[in-house]
């Protein structure tokens, strides 16, 4: 093992990490927004909304991310629509967030449904409307159920964002591979990339783990 190449090429990893964090961050945010909408559609009483959301979730979870990426990258062709490298990044973020949304929707739905039925009944028996019961009683409890799984989903998005290197986005994986190519070292650049991914994911789970513990106070 020889990591001497780092003195010359370290900026590739820094740039790549920045890009990875950027892509993952926006994918997660958009994924949560879209996932929340999907989950609300899924638990709603409107049959059409329910079917649309359920089929979407099933489809996204049942097809490979890479296929989805290519469909969006080549099929929707953001690079032509909004131009060049920004279009590529958009394809990447859109794919990751559309994919993540399906998982987030399931996490939120099961979080809401795992709140004991008696809670809704008790709230309604006091005279609260359905909306109030959701807001004051169900959502706060669901949020606690949802958080650990959601953290897990963030981590998955960070890791899976490496797949967008395939469409030429200069994130961590792409840059690590570039360094591999120019240095002719097969191992070390990729090991550095792996370590950076690992640091990103573990520090995220620590950070959010703390938040979780603070929320657990009432248990």
């Amino acid at each position: 093992m020889n990591f001497d190449f780092l003195t010359k090429y370290y900026s590739f990893f820094i740039q790549g990490t920045k890009f990875t964090v950027f892509i993952a961050f926006f994918s997660v945010i958009l994924g949560i927004i879209f996932g929340t909408i999907l989950s609300l559609m899924r638990i709603s009483n409107n049959k059409i909304l329910k079917v649309v959301s359920t089929s979407y979730i099933e489809f996204m979870r049942g097809t490979p991310l890479l296929v989805q990426l290519f469909i969006i990258y080549y099929g929707l062709d953001f690079s032509n629509l909004i131009g060049g490298s920004f279009g590529d990044i958009a394809s990447g973020i859109v794919t990751l967030s559309l994919n993540s949304a399906a998982y987030v929707a399931e996490i939120i739905r099961s979080g809401i449904q795992s709140v004991d039925k008696g809670q809704m009944e008790a709230a309604r028996s006091l005279g609260m409307t359905y909306k109030m019961a959701m807001r004051y009683v169900i959502y706060p409890q669901a949020f606690k159920n949802i958080l650990p799984a959601l953290v897990n989903e963030f981590i998955v998005v960070i890791k899976e964002s490496s797949i967008v290197s395939i469409i030429g986005i200069h994130e961590l994986m792409y840059n690590a591979d570039t360094v591999r190519g120019v240095t002719f070292r097969p191992f070390e650049p990729l090991i550095i990339a792996a370590i950076i991914y690992f640091i990103l994911t573990t520090s995220l789970s620590r950070l959010l783990g703390n938040l979780e513990r603070r929320l657990k106070l009432s248990d």
């Binding site: 008696g118 028996s125 409890q141």
Partner: peptide, 12 residues
Amino acid sequence: GMVFQSFNLFPN
């Protein structure tokens, strides 16, 4: 007012 078998206090 209603009181349930399983109490159903709001744990949050």
